[in-house]
Amino acid sequence: MEIIKLHHPLSSDFHQSEKLVLAMGYFDGIHLGHQKVLEKAREIAMQKNLPLAVLTYDHKPAVVYKQLSPHDRRNIIMPDSKNEMFESLGVNKVFVVNYSFSFQNQTPQEFVDNYLVRFNADTVVAGTDHTYGAKDATMDLLPNYAKNRFDVVAVDLADYQLEKISSTRIRKNLDEGHIQTVNHLMGRPFQTGGTVVHGFARGRELGYPTANIEHDELQWLPTIGVYVVDVFIGEKKYHGMASIGRNVTFGDKNPITVEINILDFNDNIYGEVLKVDWLYRIRGEVKFEGIDKLIKQLQSDEDFTRQYFENN
């Protein structure tokens, strides 16, 4: 899969000679709705024997038109993982545009002429709620701007529990700890990746050694709590229980950390880059009155985690 990074305006020597089918969107999460768009685009590409391309952006478009908190600037899926998903879904080429004010400030017609036409699109596919250009033109209007130069296909996003599947809905459920709903909306376990770093070694002292995971600051994480997880070290998968929290039993001003106790595992993995599938939220964070009560709760969490994997 070819990844092409672009800056607005396109260089005068930019040239796309081969016709292609183009799917548009930021695709944060590549949830079931996004997958429906990409699958439709792939179906058309196969029918027409054309390459499948994606037009996406290097950061959230909202960065341009409103102030975002550090929390809201985070992504459900990081760029490398997004590209891996694109490739797995049959995408041949990804155009990554720097989403700047000048790019957004194009009229809908300018956007179509400057990008979709210069990309030599045979067919353009996007979700029905996709907008483009300074006036937030809708997909219903795109045929007017296309002027018979390419076909337009708008895809209704898949529904779950009578609601539209959206990245906004996924982020809300992550913040509320509804990880099973998130996984239903995404069509796969919510996954993060990070590097194992040194912590305070409290888990080892309690009999539950943990891998402390340092995530990219732009990675959206589930809310504070204790979770059942799968951990991938290289190609090997391990079961575990994870804690996202401030270790409030040991103080009220601790930073939020991600710690994972990998079941039946005791190797030194400092420096390893792990992938974590978040499967089930066991409980929220609790401040315990004494270490003995904390250890008893950890034993209960472990029993729950082992039972979960026996039943799933």
Rank of each mutant, 00 (worst) to 15 (best):
G284A: 11
L221N: 10
T195S: 13
N98V: 04
E235Q: 14
E259T: 11
N98W: 06
V197I: 15
D151W: 01
D28K: 03
R281V: 04
E39G: 02
L185F: 00
V117S: 01
D28V: 07
N120K: 09
D277P: 10
L89Y: 01
Y238A: 07
P255I: 03
R204Q: 15
K237F: 08
I213K: 11
T249S: 12
D72C: 10
L10D: 00
L89E: 00
Q109P: 02
K172L: 11
D80I: 12
L218C: 11
S17W: 12
V64S: 05
F309N: 05
K236P: 01
R74S: 11
G271M: 11
R118S: 09
A45M: 03
F304P: 04
V152N: 00
R281T: 04
A154P: 02
A146K: 02
P255C: 08
T128R: 11
G25A: 04
Q161R: 15
Y132K: 00
V153K: 12
G199Y: 08
A121V: 00
V226R: 08
D216V: 05
N98R: 13
L218G: 10
I260K: 06
A134H: 06
M186Q: 13
Y280M: 01
T192S: 15
A201P: 04
E205I: 07
I260T: 04
Y99V: 00
E259K: 06
V37Y: 01
M1I: 10
H130I: 03
L274I: 07
D267I: 03
E18W: 08
S167C: 06
K66G: 09
N311H: 14
K66W: 09
I213F: 10
G133V: 11
A53C: 02
D252E: 14
K147T: 04
H215Q: 10
T168C: 02
K164E: 15
Y208V: 08
E285V: 01
V276C: 01
P209V: 06
F232S: 11
V54N: 03
V54A: 04
M78E: 15
N183D: 03
E272G: 02
E259L: 07
V96D: 07
I262G: 13
Y65L: 05
H239W: 11
L50N: 05
A146N: 01
S69N: 06
Y65K: 07
N173W: 12
I256Y: 06
N148T: 10
Q219L: 02
G25M: 05
K253M: 13
D267Q: 14
D28W: 04
